[in-house]
Design a protein around this nucleic acid. Structure first.
Lengths: 237, 237
DNA sequence: ATAGTTAGTTTAAATTTTAAACAAAGGTAG
DNA sequence: CTACCTTTGTTTAAAATTTAAACTAACTAT
């Protein structure tokens, strides 16, 4: 038992993980809760922070324990602390955000006797706690992020075609076949893509395969406070 | 005394408040710590969260108690939870961010026998805890925010000239006399400014006074996910 | 009346964006 | 082998926007 002079809240982490498999929908990683409260409901992966681990460490640990997904980059999203957000008492939760490609993170182990599953974004189930608020904020973050960072870095496999990159943008921005040949021009002009070969065995002209060039990306991101990159990525829909 | 089955961290809030008085420098509100740890050091206003108040409520309460500054909008900035960031033990702090104009928020009461003072951004003293990290992140947020929201709403008095607005942008972006007559064109084109009169008794052609039009702003912010407003405000330096 | 100072407009050249037509490189079916 | 289908990739001219220079306006101070 632990005793303190003043009352203290519990602190948890929750993790919003988006996955992409090349299709028309992004997916989100959810778990089915094995215990009360909200037993049997779907929820974001997450749990209590240990006192000897940093917040991000706690997020990665809980994610792996509950879903088997690991080796990913996370960024902090927002902290939720409404007085009555958890029926167990005062619980403050720090939410994290991540993008992965589903080829590299397919596994969904179920260690704690809880199920874990990838849901298409437009078919999410009802969620426990205030997790639908968290997801709403994460969606906003994603829509903003796509404007100033090349999200393909994280969502696509190492090598991809411009067509796949465009499909990803259309999926994330949720627009019907938005682009023009100008997508190609604008993306290539940035210089963050590097040719690495050609498609094989496709029933049409094989497309050039590209990979992201981290160095060029960094240089661009530093120029004028990132404004150069931001303007390059923030094209009309 | 309060007893729990598992150990719990303390949770605090810290508030970064920027003030503007029309000059060449933004200012930041700091307090001098009256107790240990870091007694006598300057720090961000802030303190422990009560269990029956929301995080934002706690931020506003602590700010008023320590500095007398109240009636302002805050937004959440980031949550700091490194294991050893506070010598008193595990303390997780939710940082908030705010912009005010110094005409409306001049008062700096010192209730808790602590001093509170506005410091020019380029003359900040050494700070307690990891508060210089927090300020660094707040500066980044401000530099980003200026690109997609009209910060004049919060930093300028209700009525102002285009010259004052331009001076503010130069101050925040830290550029030497950046603009062209094009600043005027771009800002006016957005339609978020409304004429309300003319300057009086100035030794030159009196400038038109403007105020922000909240309605137009909201409409613009909604158009295409805020893209219209973002592109209107994100001009070259 | 004139000089000094900042406000504000007009405009033409330079640049960028947009969108259409067109050309290329495969595989596949007959 | 040839014609055709599909998607990739290029060229380009018209339209729109940006840039920056010269110019005009309105007021106070001397």
């Amino acid at each position: 038992m632990y005793t303190y002079e003043y009352p203290r809240p519990s602190v948890t982490v929750d993790i919003v993980v988006y996955g992409y498999d090349g299709g028309k929908q992004l997916k989100m990683l959810l778990i089915e809760r094995g215990g009360e409260p909200f037993k049997g409901h779907w929820a974001l992966p997450g749990g209590f922070v240990d006192l000897d681990e940093d917040l991000e460490t706690a997020a990665l640990r809980e994610l792996e324990e509950e879903t088997g997904v690991k080796d990913l980059f996370v960024e902090q999203l927002y902290t939720y602390g409404a007085v009555n957000r958890d029926p167990r008492g005062r619980v403050i939760s720090v939410a994290y955000f991540s993008l992965v490609n589903l080829q590299d993170h397919p596994a969904v182990a179920s260690s704690d006797a809880t199920k874990a599953e990838w849901f298409p974004l437009n078919e999410l189930p009802e969620l426990a706690f205030d997790h639908s608020d968290i997801i709403k904020k994460a969606n906003e973050r994603l829509a903003a992020k796509v404007r100033y960072q090349p999200i393909g870095f994280e969502l696509l496999p190492a090598e991809f075609t411009l067509g796949q990159l465009q499909q990803l943008y259309e999926t994330v921005l949720n627009v019907e076949s938005f682009n023009k040949r100008n997508f190609r021009t604008r993306i290539l002009r940035t210089g963050i893509l590097e040719e690495v070969g050609r498609q094989q065995n496709v029933a049409h002209r094989p497309a050039v395969l590209y990979k992201f060039n981290q160095e060029t990306y960094k240089k661009l991101a530093e120029q004028r406070d990132g404004g150069v990159l931001r303007r390059a990525l923030d094209f009309e829909i």
